Amino acid sequence: MIEIHNIHKSFDGKKVLDGVSGVFETGKTNLLLGASGTGKSVLLKCIVGLIKPDLGSVTFDGTYFTNNKLDIRQEIRRKIGMLFQGSALFDSMTVEENVEFPLRMLTEMNREERLDRVNFCLKRVGLENANKKMPSEISGGMMKRVGIARAIAPHCTYLFCDEPNSGLDPLTAIKIDALIAEITEEYDITTIIVTHDMNSVIEIGDKIMFLYQGQKLWEGSNDEIMDTDVKELNEFIFANRLMRDAKKVEDEGGHSDL
């Protein structure tokens, strides 16, 4: 479980985060939802320690992270897996080498142990025969899977995903969402996903925090989000005709053919 308490952050006098607090639960997909520029990625970076908040604190399973001793922060960081928006694979490394990289940096495993773990993780994401391929030889969806394998390779306790569906076609995006949700539940990970994709919300939104202009305006599950009375959230959800039509059908008690 990750808890954030009264997080504030400004850049050049412009407030980006304004007193955000919340709890991200273990074994569930926790989504940070909102339009571009609402502070989602900045909040994610504050949580993992890439940006220091001006005010507020972060705790990981009860351990204070913000401003704690360096060795404690480093110990927590070793338990963090990151799936970056563009996958961020090393172009000069094979798939196998990319997944092995955090094991070489963060663990005491020998070569044989590392390769066993790499093969296990690649098999878990459905890429057991891709070890020797280069990033330039695989599709965008496969690159995301490699990114997930690399993130979970060091036995991460916390998984952070920044726009994991960015640049993917709808079917591949759904598969990546499902894979993240499966891994979260299977390994009892605390997963936080930055997204503006309503498909992800509907498919895997166990717990959703909606940010608007740097503030948390709503929190709930994907079962509750369609019935909120928060004006800004409704404007975000029903911005496209498909979602408006779905809502109309639901309100009328009918059945949609969509």
Rank of each mutant, 00 (worst) to 15 (best):
G140Y: 07
G140E: 10
G141H: 12
M142F: 13
M142W: 05
M142Q: 11
M143W: 01
M143A: 08
M143Y: 03
M143S: 12
K144R: 12
R145Y: 13
R145Q: 12
R145S: 08
G147A: 03
G147H: 00
G147V: 00
I148K: 02
A149L: 09
R150F: 08
R150A: 09
I152Q: 09
I152L: 06
A153K: 00
A153N: 00
P154Y: 01
P154C: 03
H155R: 15
H155E: 12
C156M: 15
C156A: 15
Y158N: 02
L159V: 07
L159D: 02
L159N: 05
L159W: 09
F160V: 06
F160M: 06
F160Q: 02
C161E: 06
C161V: 14
C161K: 05
D162M: 07
D162S: 15
D162G: 08
E163S: 12
E163G: 07
E163Y: 15
E163A: 08
N165L: 03
N165D: 08
S166N: 10
S166F: 10
S166V: 12
G167T: 13
D169K: 11
D169S: 10
P170R: 15
P170G: 13
L171G: 01
T172R: 11
T172L: 10
T172P: 04
A173I: 06
